[in-house]
Simulated assay, not measured.
Amino acid sequence: MHYEIHGNPEATQTVVLCSGLGGAAGYWAPHLTALSKTHRVISYDQRGTGRSPAALAEGYSIADMADELLTLLDSLAVTHCAFVGHALGGLVGLQIALHRPALLERLVLINAWAAPNAHSARCFDTRIQLLTHCGAAAYVAAQPLFLYPPTWIVANGERLEADLAHALAHFPGETNTLLRIAALRAFDISAQLGAIKVPTLVMASRDDSLVPWTQSVQLAEGLANAELDVRDFGGHACNLTEQTDFETRLLAFLQPPV
C-alpha cells in the first residue's frame, strides 16, 4: 500500500491517520503542518483506493482493513502509536484496539460508530443507487451533501470543485466502492466495546447528516476509557470544516502523560 511519513523521525510519538470511505491519505493533508511539528505522522491510501490499486475480494471486511494496516505498520517497525480515524477509519481503529491493543497509546474516533443505524443505512442506500444507476460522476458530485454543512459548502465552492475533480479522477471503481460500503455496513462490535481499554477521544458533530451524533455518545458510553467531544457545527467532516479547533483538541489529547 502507498504510505507517506511526515514530521520529525525522532519524535517520541507516531500518529497514524486513517481515512474514511474514500480511503486516501490526501484527506489528512490540511492537518500535516500542525501534526508534523511535534509528531511522526503516517498516512496511507487504503488497499483498493488511490495509489494502492487492488481488486477487493467478495466479503471484504473492516477486519481485513485492520490486518492490512497492521502488516504495513509491522513493516515500518511501529510498535506503539496514536491512531486517528475518520468514520470508516475509526472502525479500523476500533478493530485494531480489539485485535492488538498494546499497539495503541491513544485512539481518536471522528464521527464513527460501533453498530449500524437506520439513518446511515438510508444514506448509504441512496449513495449506492446513485453509483449503480447514475455512475461515478453523480456519486462523487453528491458527496459534499453527506460530508459538509450547507453554509460551509456555500463558502468553499472553489475548493470543493477542485476536490471533486480530484476525487472523480481517482475514483476507485464501482466494485471496490460497493465492497467497502458493505464492509462498514456489516461492522458491529457493540457487544465488545467494554473490552477496549485504550484511552479514546470520541469526536462528533450534532449536524452530521450521515452518521447521527448519538452514535458517538453510545461509543463513549460503551468504551472503558473514553472522552466525548460533541460540537454543534462541522458536519461529517468536522475535522476539515472546523480545522483549527479540531487540531487544538486533537494535539491536547495526544500529548503523552507526564
Results as ranks from 00 to 15, higher is better:
94 L>W: 04
66 A>T: 09
63 A>F: 01
79 T>N: 14
67 D>L: 06
85 G>V: 06
67 D>R: 13
68 E>H: 12
81 C>R: 08
91 L>C: 14
81 C>K: 08
90 G>Y: 04
96 I>V: 13
74 D>W: 01
68 E>D: 15
87 A>T: 11
92 V>Y: 04
90 G>T: 04
71 T>N: 09
68 E>N: 15
66 A>M: 02
83 F>H: 04
94 L>G: 00
66 A>H: 03
76 L>S: 12
88 L>C: 11
85 G>A: 08
83 F>M: 03
84 V>N: 05
81 C>M: 13
66 A>I: 07
86 H>G: 06
96 I>D: 05
84 V>F: 07
94 L>E: 07
73 L>S: 12
83 F>I: 05
78 V>P: 11
96 I>E: 05
91 L>Y: 02
69 L>Q: 07
88 L>M: 15
64 D>G: 04
66 A>F: 00
96 I>G: 02
85 G>D: 11
63 A>L: 05
79 T>F: 02
92 V>A: 07
82 A>P: 08
74 D>K: 14
84 V>H: 08
90 G>F: 04
92 V>E: 06
83 F>P: 07
89 G>R: 02
79 T>L: 09
63 A>W: 04
92 V>P: 04
92 V>R: 05
72 L>F: 09
76 L>N: 11
90 G>Q: 01
79 T>V: 11
75 S>R: 13
75 S>F: 08
86 H>Y: 12
65 M>C: 11
82 A>N: 07
63 A>R: 10
70 L>N: 08
83 F>D: 00
70 L>S: 03
85 G>S: 10
90 G>R: 04
71 T>G: 04
91 L>H: 02
63 A>K: 10
86 H>F: 13
92 V>F: 01
77 A>P: 04
85 G>Y: 07
82 A>Y: 07
71 T>P: 03
92 V>G: 08
85 G>H: 11
75 S>A: 14
64 D>M: 09
79 T>M: 09
85 G>Q: 10
71 T>W: 02
61 S>K: 00
73 L>C: 12
71 T>Y: 02
74 D>Y: 01
87 A>D: 13
69 L>Y: 01
93 G>V: 05
78 V>Q: 11
77 A>H: 14
94 L>F: 01
65 M>L: 14
66 A>Y: 07
70 L>W: 01
61 S>I: 07
83 F>R: 03
83 F>W: 15
95 Q>Y: 01
79 T>D: 13
77 A>V: 04
96 I>P: 03
69 L>R: 05
94 L>N: 05
61 S>W: 06
76 L>Y: 10
76 L>M: 13
82 A>F: 09
72 L>D: 08
91 L>M: 15
91 L>G: 02
62 I>F: 03
70 L>E: 12
77 A>S: 15
68 E>M: 03
84 V>M: 08
85 G>N: 11
95 Q>W: 01
80 H>N: 14
67 D>K: 09
84 V>L: 10
85 G>W: 04
63 A>T: 12
81 C>Y: 09
67 D>H: 08
69 L>I: 00
75 S>T: 14
78 V>T: 10
76 L>G: 09
77 A>C: 11
65 M>A: 12
63 A>C: 05
62 I>T: 05
81 C>S: 09
68 E>C: 05
94 L>K: 05
72 L>E: 09
64 D>N: 15
75 S>C: 06
